[in-house]
C-alpha cells in the first residue's frame, strides 16, 4: 500500500488537499473529466493515463486539488469507470477511500440511442433508470422506454 502510493505520486504529483480518482480504465479518463465537469474547475487538476497498475494492467488517475465530491456526483462515473476508487486527501494523507457505486438513475450525461426518442428531437435533459439485474448494464430511457446498452452508449 505504502509503496504503491509512493510510486503513483512519482507519476502524478501529490496534492495536499482534495480528491483522487483512481483505477479509471484508460479509455475512460477523458469521459470522467467531462462527466464531472473537471474542465470547468479553476483549481489544479492533474491526470495521468496509461499508468502501470498491477491490478488492471494500465489505468488512469485524476487528482483534483481542494475538491471534495458528493457521493451522487462521483457515482455518475460508474458507467465509464465501474471499478474506480475515490480517495479523499487531507494534509497529503488518505483520510477516506470509497469505491464508486452504480447509481439507480442517470441524468443528463448519456444520450438515448433511439433516434426517434423525443430527447433527441427537442431540448430535453435525458433521464434513465439503471437496470442492474441484467447480465450487462442497461439504461432504460425515462421517456421512450427503450434500453441503451454499453455498446450503444454515447456521452453528452
Amino acid at each position: 500500500m505504502e509503496n504503491k502510493e509512493t510510486r503513483e505520486e512519482l507519476q502524478v504529483s501529490a496534492i495536499e488537499n482534495g480528491s483522487v480518482i483512481d483505477h479509471i480504465p484508460v479509455q475512460g479518463v477523458f469521459q470522467v473529466i467531462k462527466i464531472l465537469n473537471l474542465d470547468q474547475i479553476e483549481d489544479m487538476v492533474l491526470f495521468g493515463n496509461n499508468l502501470e497498475s498491477g491490478k488492471y494492467g494500465k489505468k488512469g488517475i485524476i487528482k483534483v486539488r481542494n475538491k471534495f465530491f458528493k457521493k451522487e456526483d462521483i457515482n455518475k462515473i460508474a458507467l465509464v469507470a465501474p471499478a474506480a476508487t475515490l480517495i479523499v486527501i487531507k494534509d497529503y494523507k488518505v483520510v477516506d477511500k470509497t469505491v464508486v457505486e452504480i447509481p439507480d438513475q442517470v441524468e443528463k450525461i448519456v444520450k438515448c440511442f433511439n433516434p426517434n426518442c423525443i430527447t433527441n428531437i427537442e431540448k430535453i435533459e435525458t433521464k434513465f433508470e439503471v437496470l442492474k439485474d441484467e447480465e450487462v448494464l442497461k439504461l432504460r430511457c425515462h421517456y421512450c422506454e427503450k434500453t441503451t446498452t454499453k455498446e450503444t452508449m454515447v456521452f453528452l
Partner: peptide, 24 residues
Amino acid sequence: KDGSARYASEVSPVPIINAGDGSN
C-alpha cells in the same frame, strides 16, 4: 416521437392521455 407523451405530462399543468407515442 417515442417518449413525447411522458415529456408532455411533465410540462403540462393539465392531465395527459397518451393516444400513441411513436412505437412506444
